[in-house]
């Protein structure tokens, strides 16, 4: 039986993990490979490397990082953030990432989804959707959540599915970084309207948050801070999810 997935997010800048460092014991872990290995050993199902191309001048460091992760980690990983060309998509996959996510690139030219999906396979293409409730509907934002696009997230999710996206990485801009829980309403309306897997993102703080996101329709839950700050390990979350009645890989 297919297990619900826990995905660890690593924010990358210049080839290193960045997050405000609060805890002494993880202070030295800024090497993405070392942290990834720890996550893998702690029961993580997948990894996502975010904002990897935020700075263009350090592209080589980024590419080098992808191949180092690929050589050392034996669980799947997705790379994205600032991916704005087909060449980058191919290079990322070529260097060893399993999946690529694109966001602004797809919003600027939705047809690109069809092309990428054909070339790397639908299963390997993730479309990231950043959404914020505008009082009427969940609106899609581009450019790292800075530009409102006047597009309904549900409609955009349906479009990317039709164009060949294999998965949706759905981030609530409002909840991101708050540790107050996922936006379960957003998860619910998007997952009900598409037939591809939906990864919930933004707001994870407690094991209960994961459970309610899964019960709202998420196929996977992504979190950064709770793992980065060593508040919980993936296996600790999974033990709770099992009690919650969900199928997980332990």
């Amino acid at each position: 039986m297919l297990a619900k997935r826990i995905i660890g997010a690593l924010d990358i800048k210049n080839g290193k993990v960045v997050k405000g460092i609060k805890f002494q014991d993880v202070k030295t872990i800024d090497d993405p490979v070392v942290l990834s290995k720890k996550y893998e050993n702690d029961g993580m199902d997948e990894l996502v490397f975010l904002d990897i191309f935020a700075t263009n001048e350090n592209r080589d460091i980024t590419y080098n990082l992808i191949s180092r992760v690929a050589e050392n980690i034996n669980i799947p990983f997705t790379v994205g953030g600032g991916v704005d060309s087909i060449e980058k998509v191919h290079k990322i996959i070529r260097l060893g990432a399993d999946k690529v996510f694109i966001n602004t690139f797809a919003l600027a030219n939705p047809e690109i989804i069809k092309k990428v999906s054909y070339e790397i396979g639908s299963s390997n293409l993730v479309i990231a959707i950043d959404a914020k409730f505008n009082g009427k509907y969940y609106e899609v934002y581009s450019n790292s959540g800075s530009i409102p696009k006047n597009i309904n997230a549900v409609e955009w999710a349906k479009t990317v599915e039709n164009y060949g996206a294999g998965e949706i990485l759905l981030t609530s801009i409002d909840n991101d970084g708050t540790k107050s829980g996922y936006d379960n309403e957003l998860i619910k309306i998007v997952s009900e309207n598409v037939n591809i897997p939906v990864i919930a993102s933004g707001g994870a703080g407690s094991p209960e948050d994961f459970c309610s996101a899964f019960k709202s329709g998420a196929d996977a839950c992504l979190a950064g801070s709770v793992f980065h700050y060593n508040i919980y390990t993936a296996n600790e979350i999974k033990n709770y999810l099992k009690e919650c009645g969900l199928n997980v890989r332990i």
């Binding site: 039986m1 297919l2 297990a3 669980i75 799947p76 299963s123 390997n124 591809i196 897997p197």
Partner: peptide, 30 residues
């Protein structure tokens, strides 16, 4: 669809490939 994630494998026959692997072990599908 896609079928993405860790799923169990039900081994039906003896196989050299699965030597030393327990039935219903999780593997990653994509």
């Amino acid at each position: 669809i896609p079928h993405i994630g860790w799923d169990t494998v039900n081994i039906l026959k003896n196989s050299k490939l699965f030597s030393g692997i327990k039935n219903n072990t999780y593997f990653y599908f994509l």
